[in-house]
Amino acid sequence: MPVDPSVIGTELQPTDLTIDSGRLRFFAKAIGETDPVFTDVEAAKSAGHPNLPVPPTFLFSIELERPDPFDWVSSLGIDLRRVLHGEQRFVYHCLAYAGDAVTANPRIVDVYSKKGGALEFVVKRTAVVRADGRLLADLESVLVVRNPEEQS
């Protein structure tokens, strides 16, 4: 079933998160980050940071904090069993640190197909802002939906 392009512009449920230093340490370990700046507060402060900085790609995980982080996909009529992760991009405007309260504000910005509809793409852009409204980062993710009933 094709994704209706009329969903372009749809604002999705925002997600609030206060960034926890324990989560940052766990995330740094999970991605294999060995720089102590991301795991040791004293090393971070010695490097000029006020607290542990957020490791690259961590902000993508904010939306995964929701009870059902993929409900927006299901609401579009997409079968999650047919979804592939296509791409993600990050544009950072400033650093985030442990203790920062942030909000992720996602919206669907594009829907298109390739291979005669056998592959559909849903592009979601998320603005991550601090509690004071300052823009931290713009995130973009692309989901690929396989439609095997369509001819390629």
Rank of each mutant, 00 (worst) to 15 (best):
E11C: 13
T15P: 09
D16S: 11
D16E: 13
F26K: 13
V41H: 05
L59V: 12
H93G: 13
G9Y: 06
D20Y: 05
S6P: 03
L95A: 07
E33V: 00
E87D: 11
E63I: 12
F58Q: 02
L59D: 02
A96G: 15
E11L: 09
T57L: 11
F70D: 14
T10P: 02
P36C: 02
A43M: 03
S61T: 14
L76Y: 01
I62M: 03
V37A: 07
T18C: 10
R66Q: 14
R81N: 14
R82E: 15
S74C: 02
Y97N: 09
P53N: 02
L64K: 03
D35Q: 08
F60G: 11
L59K: 01
E42W: 00
E87N: 08
L59E: 04
A28G: 04
T18D: 05
V41M: 03
L84D: 06
S46E: 15
T39W: 10
F26A: 15
D16G: 10
H49S: 01
P56M: 11
T57N: 08
L95I: 01
E87S: 06
P5R: 12
Y97D: 08
Y92N: 11
G9A: 06
G32A: 06
Y92I: 03
V73Q: 08
L84W: 09
Q88Y: 05
L24C: 03
L12C: 06
R89S: 13
D35P: 04
L12S: 04
V37R: 13
G86E: 07
G32L: 10
G9V: 08
I62L: 12
L17W: 08
A30S: 15
A28Y: 05
P67Q: 06
G99C: 09
F38E: 01
T15D: 06
R66M: 08
V91Y: 03
L64P: 02
